[in-house]
């Protein structure tokens, strides 16, 4: 269990990184907590590894009124400590173990797109986005031609000629198991997690076999109440029960009522209809289907309670 040979690059700035990614068939190395196990088991054998850990300006965690922008090198532990977003905090406690979170990045987890990972679900339920950068075609100052997603000039460090930057919304970002919209040559520079609307609460409930394992199933929920403390909006994103995080808007099923009188059975049924769990060695599809409903109810109730309680 040793990594296969590869050429190692440690670019010093974004420009150099994007140049490299444009020129070589390379894998980005961020925290390495998913990539290096794959290398050690020789399940991945990239010819080049582009280590982005030395890039300046990518470790930022910026909280604005609209939400939080997390830079590509912000470690999971740092983001949790920053306490900038309640749902991110709730999710990060469930990601692996503290020691893994010291290296693993939030953005790396999104790009890695494990169907059982927590952070993709958080991005999905919040309707966040990932910012991807690549070298402009031809490597020169050409106009930033968007290729899908929403092209944006982007205030990315690196100087001119500006890289091509696109902002991909969560629902387009997660393409399949271990498959994100980030293409070869692209670097994810940051992710944006929208803030919760007022009178909202969130929760993440999951069941893992061992503490810190990827979950058998998990549900994160955001509930927004109206002035009368009736459920105005309720969304969940479920992990481990589909190829990508499964988002379900259950506002309607909750039926603008106080949380206490929400017809939970109907809500749970709506969540269960949305997911497509499969059997694996740890749990049957039937169990996961059952479990996701249980977790959805727990998460929604908790989120509603938090929405009702002033912070």
């Amino acid at each position: 269990m040793k990594p296969p040979p590869f050429t190692y690059h440690a670019p010093r700035d974004l420009r150099e990184a994007l140049d490299l990614l444009a020129e070589v068939d390379g894998k980005v190395l961020a925290g390495g907590q998913s990539l290096i196990p794959l290398l050690n088991m020789r399940l991945a054998a990239p010819a080049h590894v582009v280590d982005v850990n030395r890039l300046p300006g990518l470790s930022g965690i910026e909280a604005g009124p609209g939400g939080v922008t997390v830079g590509a090198l912000a470690r999971q532990a740092e983001v949790a400590r920053a306490g900038v977003h309640p749902l991110l905090g709730q999710a990060l406690r469930l990601v692996a173990h503290p020691v893994i979170r010291n290296r693993g990045t939030v953005v790396g987890s999104l790009v890695h797109a494990d169907p059982a990972a927590e952070l993709p679900a958080v991005l999905a339920v919040l309707g966040g986005s990932v910012r991807l950068a690549r070298r402009a075609p031809g490597g020169s100052s050409g106009p930033a031609a968007g290729r899908g997603g929403s092209p944006s000039p982007g205030a990315v460090p690196g100087g001119s000629p500006g890289p091509v930057v696109r902002e991909v919304a969560a629902d387009a970002f997660f393409a399949g198991p271990l498959e994100s919209a980030a293409e070869p040559g692209e670097l994810a520079v940051s992710a944006f997690f929208p803030a919760l609307p007022p009178r909202s609460g969130s929760a993440f409930e999951e069941l893992a076999r061992r503490h810190g394992d990827y979950a058998l199933a998990g549900v994160c929920a955001v509930v927004t109440l109206d002035e009368d403390l009736h459920v105005a909006a309720a969304r969940v994103a479920c992990v481990g029960v589909g190829p990508v995080p499964v988002v379900a808007d259950v506002s309607e099923a909750c039926g603008r009522r106080p949380a206490a009188t929400v017809p939970w059975e109907a809500v749970v049924a709506a969540v269960r209809r949305a997911v497509e769990p499969e059997d694996d060695i740890h749990a049957s599809a039937a169990y996961r289907l059952h479990l996701v409903g249980v977790l959805a109810e727990r998460a929604l109730r908790e989120a509603a309670a938090r929405a009702a309680a002033p912070p």
Binding site: Q33, A77, I100, N102
Partner: peptide, 22 residues
């Protein structure tokens, strides 16, 4: 592969897996 923790060392004071670090 990062699970057992035997290889944990302190990197600038923070514990990390040395088997998952180049």
């Amino acid at each position: 592969h990062g699970v057992c923790g035997c290889c944990t060392v302190l990197l600038d004071g923070e514990p990390v897996r040395s088997c998952l670090t180049l």
